[in-house]
């Protein structure tokens, strides 16, 4: 896990709205190594989807605009690519599972046809070969009687099955990177467990790298090698998975983890709660975006936004205060 497959630097994405400019992503940098699973976590509206959509140049413009940044994939900057060039990569070497399975499957096209299309485009194989491969793919994601079910339409599949079809589709062209945007959020826990189990198995078989978006810190713990926590359009903490859960360091991450009930704990404690609300994004903040909700806040926090700095063990954090000692860094 040493070679950097993807390296995003200083990504900034904004939206022009009648109420003003929404600063959705404000200088996000991240890297993805070969075979690695990176989880992007954070609350609704913090910029997770916009980050990955920007990397694939899928931001609609207007109203959206990628204002700055680079995204190197095997040496080439995706953000500098023309439409035709990026289309060759999208759905091929980098594939994506979108947040809502119902809107990303075409309701009037059979599952089989939808599976074959990207393969015909990216793999240059024949219709027959694509059909055979579709059956194998559906089988590998656990759809029974796969050959028959290719003729079905999306509404004939359950929510969990549709999500598995989305995974099959995303894997059909042997991607090196799979980007999955909350692929299990709408599903029941038992189906969620099925899907996570499936992706972990396929990841090992295919050796692909994954960016997995979730707001569920439990799912992130079960699947990630590394985690990046986002807040108000910034990455505020980044660390290897065991390091993050053992030593959460940013006040927001600490608060999030503490506000979850502990399933293993025997007793019943009052839940910790982060008071206040997530920030509105109409202005680029000149303070720490978390300052209004932060228990550790010091004067400095109100005057300058802390950069994401390394603190050892592959751990990076954007905070002026050392939350272990309570002193300013």
């Amino acid at each position: 896990m040493n070679d950097k497959l993807l390296e995003v630097e200083g990504l900034e994405t904004q939206f022009n709205t009648p109420d003003g400019v929404v600063h959705a992503v404000n200088g996000v940098s991240l890297e993805l190594h070969e075979g690695e699973t990176l989880c992007l976590v954070g609350e609704s509206g913090c910029g997770k989807s916009v980050t990955v959509l920007s990397i694939l140049k899928l931001i609609q413009s207007p109203p959206g605009k990628i204002a700055a940044g680079k995204a190197f994939f095997k040496g080439a900057d995706l953000l500098a690519m023309g439409n035709e060039e990026i289309r060759q990569i999208r759905g091929g070497q980098i594939s994506m599972i979108f947040q809502d399975p119902m809107t990303s499957l075409n309701p009037i096209m059979t599952i089989g046809k939808q599976l074959e299309e990207p393969m015909l485009l990216h793999l240059g194989i024949s219709k027959n070969e694509a059909q055979e491969r579709s059956v194998k793919l559906l089988e590998s994601v656990g759809i029974p009687q796969a050959a028959d079910r290719l003729k079905d339409y999306p509404h004939q599949y359950s929510g969990g099955m549709r999500q598995r079809v989305m995974i099959a589709m995303a894997l059909s062209c042997n991607p090196q990177i799979l980007i999955a945007d909350e692929p299990t959020t709408a599903l029941d826990v038992t189906i969620q467990a099925q899907i996570v189990d499936l992706v972990v198995r396929l990841r090992e078989e295919l050796g692909m790298a994954i960016i997995w978006i979730t707001h569920d810190l439990g799912i992130a713990a079960s699947i990630a090698n590394r985690i990046a926590v986002m807040y108000g359009g910034f990455i505020i903490e980044k660390a290897p998975v065991s390091e993050l859960y053992a030593h959460p360091t940013h006040p927001y991450t600490i608060g999030l983890l503490n506000s979850l009930p502990q399933i293993q704990a025997r007793g019943r404690k009052r839940l910790y709660s982060i008071e206040g609300m997530p920030p509105v994004l109409y202005q680029m903040p000149h303070s720490c975006p978390f300052a209004p909700r932060c228990k550790w806040v010091v004067e400095h926090c109100w005057h300058e936004n802390p950069p994401l700095d390394p603190i050892g063990d592959g751990h990076e954090v954007a905070c002026w205060v050392d939350t272990v000692t309570g002193k300013e860094r």
């Binding site: 038992t190 189906i191 467990a193 099925q194 189990d197 859960y245 293993q264």
Partner: peptide
């Protein structure tokens, strides 16, 4: 099965626990 499917916010948990994965819907 429901209990074993709960995502637990602790990576160490997954090294020691085998999940019960229910088949089908």
């Amino acid at each position: 099965a429901l209990l074993s499917a709960i995502p637990v916010p602790d990576p160490a948990y997954y090294e020691t626990h085998q999940r019960i994965i229910l088949e089908g819907d």
